[in-house]
């Protein structure tokens, strides 16, 4: 049991930190521009595919730098020539634009790279077990993922709080008009933040690609979870996104690891449910079975009872 808890904890942290790399960019974009970027996870997928192609020619490590930069530039271009153009039609149109973009990027990816799973591998140097605990290996690559995510977290924190650019960004988040009046080029800041957010998602894709397999559906399976994090954490709150990422990451791994079901509770209470009625599936419901819906349950509950999210201060 201890072994299960220990490894679930580690796996949960790996997933949570990975999700945070996506969520941090999304929450910055959302709080500045008020746009929930549906295509954010698509940039994550693009990161993985770019890095895969780069690794085919020059290996894994250059891809770690080049792929996120490419994704970031692409993101900035899309903001400049796509999103900013659509902005004139209003918020709903912007949301629908990013929704369509997500659809389009998936099609483009399967057009360029094909539909099959790509054999994007972790670098040879990281293909060993970092430590063995109760006979179970912990791959070094997972540790590397944790390391990169934490490094990015710290870098992000430092940039936002210790640099001039970070202060301008913070100002633009809370008072965009006032910041513009002070002579800062707010549209340029928007474009930059959008690009950096996409680059972060791309970097997450680069390191997640080998671990979670690289295929055209990889954006969809992660896409809506990232929204859940941003909304649950609270709009515009990086700290909230961090906490929510870890909660969701841990929740998903632990829900799969722990085999408790409704029938266990019922048997403790000495109730024997009928096994024929329309609700029969409810009585056999187990925790691993409901694991995929827990994040959405959390989302709906948070939106009903605390629309500002855990740490947020405003609704939209």
């Amino acid at each position: 049991m201890f072994e299960l808890i220990f490894f679930s904890l580690l796996n949960g942290i790996v997933t949570g930190l990975l999700l945070f790399m996506l969520a941090s960019g999304l929450t910055l974009i959302f709080s500045m521009m008020g746009v929930l970027n549906f295509a954010h996870a698509s940039f994550y997928m693009l990161g993985a595919y770019f890095a895969y192609t780069i690794s085919e020619y020059v290996g894994f490590w250059p891809g770690l730098i080049i792929a996120p930069v490419l994704v970031g530039v692409l993101g900035a271009l899309i903001e400049r020539y796509g999103l900013r153009y659509v902005h004139r039609w209003g918020h709903v149109a912007e949301l629908i634009f990013t929704f369509g973009l997500a659809f389009l990027i998936e099609e483009v990816v399967s057009f360029i790279w094909g539909k099959e799973t790509k054999a994007y591998q972790e670098p040879e140097i990281l293909q060993f077990a970092l430590f063995t605990f109760f006979g179970q290996d912990f791959p070094a690559y997972k540790a590397f993922m944790i390391f990169i995510s934490i490094a990015i977290c710290i870098a992000l924190l430092l940039v936002l709080t210790r640099t001039r650019i970070g202060l301008i960004i913070q100002a633009a988040i809370s008072h965009p008009n006032m910041t513009a009046m002070l002579g800062h080029n707010v549209p340029f800041v928007f474009m930059g933040v959008f690009g950096v957010g996409c680059a972060l998602a791309g970097l997450a894709g680069v390191i997640a690609g080998p671990a979670l397999t690289t295929f055209p559906g990889m954006a969809v399976v992660l896409g809506s979870i990232v929204f859940v994090i941003v909304v649950v954490g609270g709009l515009g709150s990086l700290g909230g996104a961090f906490v929510a990422s870890l909660i969701i990451g841990l929740m998903q791994t632990f829900a799969i690891s722990l085999d408790y079901s409704v029938s266990d509770i019922l048997s403790v209470l000495n109730i024997t449910p009928d096994s024929e009625g329309a609700l029969r599936d409810l009585w056999t419901l187990s925790l691993p079975q409901v694991a995929p819906i827990l994040p959405y349950l959390l989302l709906v509950l948070i939106l009903i009872f605390r629309p500002t999210g855990l740490f947020g201060k405003r609704e939209s």
């Binding site: 072994e3 299960l4 796996n11 179970q136 791994t253 799969i256």
Partner: peptide, 10 residues
């Protein structure tokens, strides 16, 4: 699939 693998291992 890591959580599932962990569970199998455990």
């Amino acid at each position: 699939f890591t959580p599932y693998a962990t569970k199998i291992r455990a």
